Simulated assay, not measured.
Amino acid sequence: MKYNAFGKLGDSVSRLGFGAMGLQGVFGHHSEKDLVRSVLHSLERGVNFIDTARNYGESERILGLALREWKGERPFIATKIQSKGPGNIGWGIPIPVKTAFPQGWLRESTELSLRLLGVETIDLMQLHQYWPQWDRVDYWMDELLQLKQEGKIRGIGISLPDQRHDVALTLVQSGKIDSVQTVFNIFDPQPLDCLIPFCQENNVALIARCILDEGGLTGFLKEDTRFEEEDFRKTYFENLPRHLYMERVNRLREAFIPQYAHSLAELAIKFVLHHPGVTTAISSMHVPQYADENIAAVDREPLPDDVFENIRRHHRWVRNFYETKYFI
C-alpha cells in the first residue's frame, strides 16, 4: 500500500480507502459478521482510511464493531453529517442551509456518530451535501469549529452531491476546510480541470469517490444483469440503454487491457490515482476479494503519462446518472 499526507491535518492515509457505503447493504445482502470481517481484512492489508456516513444505514454501527475488534494502529475515520431534509432533498437542487443543517443538528448528528463508531474523536467530519450559497451564512461553520475546539472532530470537509465539481472552488480557497470529496472516474475526469489543482494549491485533501462508477468500470454489467429492489445500482444503470454503457466499457477493454492493466478495475484505479493532487480514492471493499483486487492495483506500475492523457481526452463520457434519483 502507498500513502499520502492528508492535507493540512498531515495524517498519513492510504491512497486507496475503504468506502463504507457497502456496509449499508445497498450492493447486495451480506451478513453482519462478513461485513465486519471485510473491514478487518482491508485494515490488515494496509488500508487505513475509512469513509462512512450517518446516512449509510447501519454502516457506522458495523464499522464501530470492527474497530472494537481491531488490534492494530487506529485508522483515519471520516464520516458525514446527514442532512435534515427527507429523502434526497437538496441533493439535486439547492436548498437553504438552515433546511439541510438547522442550528444544533450538526452537533446532534456528530454525537450520534461518535457513539455508534465507539470513538472519542472523528478525524474528519464532512457535510453530506454542500452548496456555495451557504457561505453567506456562518453559523454552520461556527458549529463545526466549536466541535473541533472541543476535540469531537479533528478536520472539516464537504462531500459534493454530484458532478458539479466547481461549486467548491471558493470554499477551497477560503482556508476553512480540510477536504473535498467528489465523483471522479474515467468517464468523468472533470475534477482534473479545476477542483484537483485548486485543492493541491491550497493544501486541501481530495477524496475521490465513485472511482469504479458504482461498479460499471469493472465490466460486470451485462444485458441480462438484474438487481434486487433495494440495490443502489438498480436505478443508477437504468436511465439509458444498457448497451451504450457496455460499448463504452468495451472500448476501454480493447484499447488498454492487458497492456496497461490486468483488469478494467485496475485501469480505473490507476487512472484516478495518477494525479498527485488526489489524496485518497475510496472504493466499496465490503467483499474481501474486491479489497484484494483493488489493493493490488495500487502497488502495480502506474499508467504512462501519454496513456493517462489519452484516456482523459478520448474516453470521457460525462453524464449524471444520479438524475434518476433526484429528478424522476
Results as ranks from 00 to 15, higher is better:
Met21Lys: 00
His41Gln: 10
Phe18Met: 07
Lys270Trp: 15
Leu192Phe: 07
Leu252Phe: 03
Thr110Glu: 01
Ala261Trp: 01
Lys33His: 07
Gln173Met: 15
Asn310Ile: 02
Ala205Leu: 11
Trp91Thr: 10
Arg164Leu: 08
Pro258Lys: 10
Glu229Lys: 14
Trp70Gln: 05
Pro241Glu: 14
Glu293Asp: 13
Gly46Ala: 04
Pro86Leu: 07
Glu69Leu: 11
Phe232Asp: 04
Arg233Tyr: 13
Phe18Cys: 05
Leu240Phe: 09
Gly19Cys: 08
Asp138Val: 12
Met246Ala: 10
His30Tyr: 00
Asp193Ala: 10
Asn55Ser: 12
Gly25Lys: 08
Met125Leu: 13
Glu120Met: 07
Val180Thr: 04
Leu221Asn: 11
Pro102Ser: 08
Ala78Cys: 14
Met141Gly: 00
Thr79Ser: 10
Asn55Arg: 08
Gly277Tyr: 12
Glu108Met: 08
Asp306Gly: 00
Ser83Asp: 01
Ser38Gln: 03
Ile328Leu: 08
Asp11His: 12
Leu171Gly: 01
Gln82Asn: 05
Ala281Cys: 14
Gly28Asp: 11
Lys80Leu: 13
Phe198Met: 12
Met125Cys: 04
Arg313Asp: 10
Trp70Met: 08
Ala100Tyr: 02
Leu267Ala: 04
Leu112Lys: 10
Leu65Cys: 13
Ile257Leu: 15
Lys71Ile: 00
Gln133Tyr: 09
Pro304Gly: 07
Tyr326Trp: 15
Gly57Val: 04
His314Pro: 01
Phe76Thr: 05
Leu117Ser: 07
Lys270Asn: 13
Cys194Gly: 02
Arg164Ala: 00
Arg136Pro: 03
Ala78Leu: 06
Trp134Phe: 15
Asp123His: 12
Cys194Trp: 02
Lys33Cys: 08
Lys270Gln: 13
Ile89Val: 13
Gln163Thr: 11
Glu323Lys: 15
Glu230Ser: 08
Phe308His: 14
Arg253Cys: 08
Tyr290Phe: 12
Ile207Tyr: 00
Ile282Gln: 06
His243Gly: 06
Ile328Trp: 07
Leu117Gly: 04
His315Gln: 03
Gly90Val: 06
Pro189Lys: 03
Leu252Ala: 02
Arg74Asn: 14
His29Ile: 12
Ser263Phe: 03
Asp305Met: 02
Lys152Met: 14
Tyr326Asn: 11
Ile50Ala: 09
Gln133Lys: 12
Tyr3Cys: 00
Gly64Tyr: 01
Gly64Thr: 03
Gly151Val: 11
Pro132Arg: 11
Leu43Cys: 11
His128Gly: 00
Val39Gly: 03
Ile177Met: 08
Pro86Gln: 05
Gly151His: 05
Leu192His: 03
Gln103Met: 14
Arg313Leu: 10
Gly22Lys: 03
Lys222Arg: 13
Leu217Val: 07
Arg74Asp: 12
Arg226Glu: 15
Gln82Phe: 00
Pro191Leu: 05
Tyr130Met: 13
Gln163Glu: 05
Ile122Val: 06
Thr218Trp: 05
Phe237Tyr: 15
Glu228Lys: 11
Asp224Lys: 14
